[in-house]
Design a protein around this nucleic acid. Sequence first.
DNA 1: CTGAAAGCGCTTACAG
DNA 2: CTGAAAGCGCTTACAG
Lengths: 336, 336
Amino acid sequence: MGDQHMGKRPTSHDVARRAGVSQTTVSFVFTGRSGISAATRERVLAAAAELNYRPNLAARSMRTHRTGRLAVVIPVSGLNLFPVLEGAAATARDAGYVVEVISLSSSPEERADDLASVAESGEYEGILSFTPIRAPQPTSTDSAPVLLSLSEFDENMHATGAFSDARPVAEIMEKLAELGHRRFLHIAGPPDYPAAVARRDLYLTTVERLGLDSLGVVGGDWSGLTANHCVQDLPDDTPPLAIIAANDVLAAGAIRGAVSRGWTVPGDVSVTGWDDLIMSAHFIPSLTTVFQDRHRLGSSSMQRLLAAIRGTEPPAQEEALQKVVWRESVAAPRAR
Amino acid sequence: MGDQHMGKRPTSHDVARRAGVSQTTVSFVFTGRSGISAATRERVLAAAAELNYRPNLAARSMRTHRTGRLAVVIPVSGLNLFPVLEGAAATARDAGYVVEVISLSSSPEERADDLASVAESGEYEGILSFTPIRAPQPTSTDSAPVLLSLSEFDENMHATGAFSDARPVAEIMEKLAELGHRRFLHIAGPPDYPAAVARRDLYLTTVERLGLDSLGVVGGDWSGLTANHCVQDLPDDTPPLAIIAANDVLAAGAIRGAVSRGWTVPGDVSVTGWDDLIMSAHFIPSLTTVFQDRHRLGSSSMQRLLAAIRGTEPPAQEEALQKVVWRESVAAPRAR
DNA sequence: CTGAAAGCGCTTACAG
DNA sequence: CTGAAAGCGCTTACAG
């Protein structure tokens, strides 16, 4: 039954023939153009359903000069960005866009070229990057797609905000100071991560503002082993101490370092992290950390990209994307 | 300079005009058709470079009836699948494909429909799923795209293998038995996860084969808290005990449960996990676990999808994707 | 409210 | 070795 059983996809012509209308009318129905009588529209839709017709997007794209496609640039490694991706993809889908995953080369030099060629390909209306990028030089001949970089990994975080918002650092340090802590140490992440820099800067500012003693800033990568060694290198008479680690892995490493030299956590040393990794709640002691709503982050980032593409105002950020989670790794300093 | 400065994308006609050849010749050069003189090819390429020309993929797709696009279906939640996605995307790119992220609805009923409509959209030559799926009913009118589900999340794992390969369970238990362990407990994952079922089954088989004592199988979700409670519920005289947990989060929860009731790990209780989460090496004690090469997993899954699309033989799996990592959470049982 | 016709930018027989 | 021409499946003025 039906005109098409040869495995060939039905076209708007097939639908038109079956519905007894012109192909133009079929197109009008599917593009939602006004001025089609309800009866005609019904006939067309029925015929389309019988044939299992769907518009050929390539053909449509060719006429409209719109691809309806957005690119997502994913990093070579890093956090669990999957929830972010989910949020972004769901939001894009609701807006009628499709999201493509772009994998870049591993060498940094090629990465820039890769990105430039993605931008110039003309295949995307917008690009959302999860990895630090520099906007490619716009070429004269084409209008570049809108490019947005998730600020966690971006150099423009002060402009874009949300992700690398370091404010929880201040909240944590204030609370620790209230508990009686005076001596602090920051274990920092890599200096090329804007979020790491933001946390470090706010640590320094807060030490100043609250008049605390700082043993300084150590570390400089995301390795738990580095954090471990940093703590091993501290003088024996360091405790009581509060360690602000730039993420949970560093916090875990720091705790291992402390425990291995006989310091108790949180008795001698309080430690805080960032990210609320899935195992952080089960760590011994469980980690005080900063939870990030990554799904919502992805969603709101995508909304900003979509707004930029459409030239509309981006929606205001309703609520904080981060929240301090207080757990066992923090306590008042033990009297010595 | 150049014919195009009005922001319009150059077409093969523009290139042809500039190179002084026909548009057909330009097309031949870009599709790599043989029988073009080196001189002509040079002229065309030079003209294309000057104009910054790239073929319009929508137009090409319309003629070739190939989209060059693959879909990746991502789960609502789960492991850190980002490395898997990277591996898959990189392999697809090398094969000339582009990968799109498909987000499914959160309700299970809609998910199946969502997937069916993705499959029927005609937009994809293949679909790789990270989440358990049932192949949609093929409609009579169109040839469905190739559909492959990562077996970690698939019901067909016995057929497809790799990801849910539970063999490390046997390796771990043999080693523990050698160390002197007799009494075992399995903390299982959810029964709808094929990988969880595979690990549980192999646990049971291995208990039998080695003639060990099993306290049974407990748990049934991926929650560390559940694992914690399972251990709390054990009789006081349980140790020495070896706990095989279905993943690292469960292992961490189990250790917390053991420690909280005064049992030492690994003195009284040995515990093993799965996944080698980033914090597992820093846990106290560090976790014995199973490392999975997820990047390679993504890559080899994509290779299988590509082979299926092309109708060629999938490449043989060179090497094990998983490896037991021995750490502090395991030791010979302490004499009691 | 509906239709005939042009054309988006390509690929691919076919002819020379 | 190269080119003229048809046509992929749509959208969109334009005309009625």
